[in-house]
């Protein structure tokens, strides 16, 4: 924190008549707030200099809700029970609850295992159990490029780069390692959901 900046900000906040909207707008419009998390120069390596945004972990709740949104998951647990540790979300949260600072969040082996092998992810990336994935695979109006774009947008909210597109298209065309094009599309979705880019706030 820079003391002079804090001082200026306080004065402006007082002058605005303690307008919270003004304060939030000022902070979020600042260059510091809008910095990218991408490192473009070695000098940005030290997090203390605030030369770029720190990559953060997500809380268990944020992660599950992101997964639910990306996979089109609809919780079969009755709404009034969801606040307790019942249901798919509650089960998931028992493994991802954490009190660490999000900027220092560590992933555990058990969390990695749950994300790779757990039943929620197995369902979400299975070509015959995920309605979303089945929809993408069967959509007659989407070519391979279109299908890849949908998966990228659903999970990491961006289009694949030309290199990614070329690599993954060839992976799908040869049916991955199983010779099965549908499964290969499932593989890509699995990798996207397990990726740092999806699981971390950047």
């Amino acid at each position: 924190m820079i003391p002079e900046l804090l001082e200026d900000l306080s004065k402006a906040f007082v002058a605005s008549g303690y307008d919270l909207r003004f304060l939030i707008q000022t902070i979020t419009r600042s260059r510091a707030y809008q910095l990218t998390s991408r490192q473009t120069h070695e000098s940005q390596a030290n997090v203390k200099t605030f030369a770029r945004m720190s990559v953060k972990g997500m809380t268990g709740e944020q992660l599950f809700d992101s997964l639910a949104q990306a996979t089109g998951f609809q919780d079969p647990t009755p709404a009034q029970q969801r606040q307790f540790s019942f249901g798919v979300r509650g089960q998931f949260l028992t493994k991802f609850a954490s009190t660490e600072k999000l900027t220092e969040k560590q992933t555990s082996i058990l969390q990695a295992l749950t994300m790779m092998n757990g039943s929620f992810m197995a369902d979400a990336t299975s070509t015959d159990r995920s309605q979303f994935l089945a929809g993408v695979i069967d959509a007659p109006f989407l070519n391979v490029k279109g299908k890849l774009e949908v998966l990228y947008l659903a999970s990491i909210s961006r289009y694949p780069s030309p290199e990614e597109l070329a690599k993954h298209t060839s992976y799908i065309d040869r049916g991955g390692n199983s010779g099965d094009r549908d499964k290969a599309i499932g593989d890509l979705f699995w990798a996207l959901l397990n990726s740092s880019e999806f699981m971390l706030n950047h």
């Binding site: 998390s37 720190s54 990559v55 992933t107 990695a112 790779m116 740092s196």
Partner: peptide, 13 residues
Amino acid sequence: HPNVVAQSHVSAY
């Protein structure tokens, strides 16, 4: 994005 949180993710996997 070299970063301790991302390293932890890779290491855990």
